[in-house]
């Protein structure tokens, strides 16, 4: 994915064609899954398998709904159901941001 650089007033607002990891996707943004990177460890493979069974495959739209009060985990809207994931798992999912730059800066 090529990053398009252009002058922005607030550098923390990502450009729509940016790719990022799911844990960096802000509440209110919509992303499309690009890949679930398995680091080829057993836990990574398990995660890929389970997320696949849950419908997180490349091409799926995903949208964070809200964070837990202590920051983790996050509820995501995935096609027609809601799924909670911790940041550790979300960091393994690469998404492209497709819509809705949030009014607040994206927080980690």
């Amino acid at each position: 994915m090529t990053r398009m650089h252009r002058a922005q007033e607030k550098p923390e607002r990502p450009h729509p064609t940016d790719a990022t990891t799911l844990d960096r996707l802000g509440v209110g943004q919509t992303g499309r899954v690009l890949a679930i990177s398995s680091d080829h460890s057993e836990p990574g493979r398990r995660l890929v398998e389970r997320l696949g069974a849950l419908g997180l495959v490349p091409g799926t739209a995903i949208r964070p709904l809200r964070r837990a009060p202590l920051g983790d985990p996050v509820v995501y809207r995935v096609c027609d159901f809601d799924l909670c994931l911790r940041a550790a798992q979300a960091a393994l999912v690469t998404v492209s941001i497709t819509a809705a730059i949030p009014t607040r800066p994206v927080d980690r």
Binding site: E42, P43, R46, L47, R50, L51, L54, P73, V75, F81, D82, L83, C84, L85, R86, A88, Q89
Partner: peptide
């Protein structure tokens, strides 16, 4: 034994 399970949980309506 290192069997670390990923955390995921569906939130039904």
């Amino acid at each position: 034994d290192g069997l670390l399970m990923p955390f995921y949980m569906e939130m039904p309506p």
